[in-house]
Amino acid sequence: MNMADMFGKLTDMQKKMEEAKQQLHELEVEAHAGGGMVKVTANGNREITSIKIDKDLVDPNDTEMLEDLVVAGINQALKKAEEAGQEKMSEITKGMLPGGMDLGNLGLK
């Protein structure tokens, strides 16, 4: 492989990585806790984008349960976002490395 080919492949890889970053930002996952009374949405960059809490769950005398459900929902959403992000990166980077390896399987982000 000559230098021009290698530079071209590197440029293509950089372009695909930028596209992947944008796609991860647009990717959305949703998690529920408390039988759906707490709904947490996150993007593929593992950023929480919204939290919805059913008004029937709000009890000023029992904030600990609400706090626990919010934490559970956030953790589940972040896990789903991580998995979805890894899957997306594997799709995008497939075949970019020698031997058919891809960056997603290496745990690189």
Rank of each mutant, 00 (worst) to 15 (best):
Q23A: 04
Q23K: 05
L24A: 09
L24F: 05
L24P: 00
L24K: 06
H25G: 09
H25V: 05
H25I: 10
E26W: 05
L27N: 03
E28V: 13
E28P: 10
V29Q: 09
V29R: 14
V29E: 05
V29C: 15
H32C: 04
A33F: 03
G34W: 06
G35R: 01
G36L: 04
G36F: 03
M37Y: 03
M37S: 07
V38P: 01
K39P: 09
K39I: 15
K39F: 07
K39M: 08
V40Q: 04
T41L: 07
A42M: 04
N43Y: 10
G44H: 03
G44V: 03
N45Q: 10
E47S: 15
I48K: 11
I48Y: 11
I48G: 08
T49S: 13
T49Q: 10
T49I: 12
T49K: 15
K52R: 07
I53F: 12
D54I: 01
D56I: 11
D56Y: 07
L57K: 06
V58N: 04
V58L: 12
V58K: 02
D59H: 11
D59Y: 08
D59N: 13
D59G: 08
D59L: 08
D62I: 01
M65S: 09
M65H: 02
M65C: 06
L66V: 08
E67S: 13
E67V: 07
E67I: 02
D68I: 03
L69V: 03
L69G: 00
L69T: 00
V70R: 13
V70F: 14
V71Q: 11
A72F: 05
G73L: 01
I74S: 14
I74E: 14
I74Y: 13
I74M: 15
Q76Y: 03
Q76G: 12
L78W: 07
K80F: 15
E82R: 13
E82N: 11
E82K: 11
E82P: 11
E83Q: 12
E83F: 05
E83V: 07
E83C: 13
A84D: 02
G85L: 02
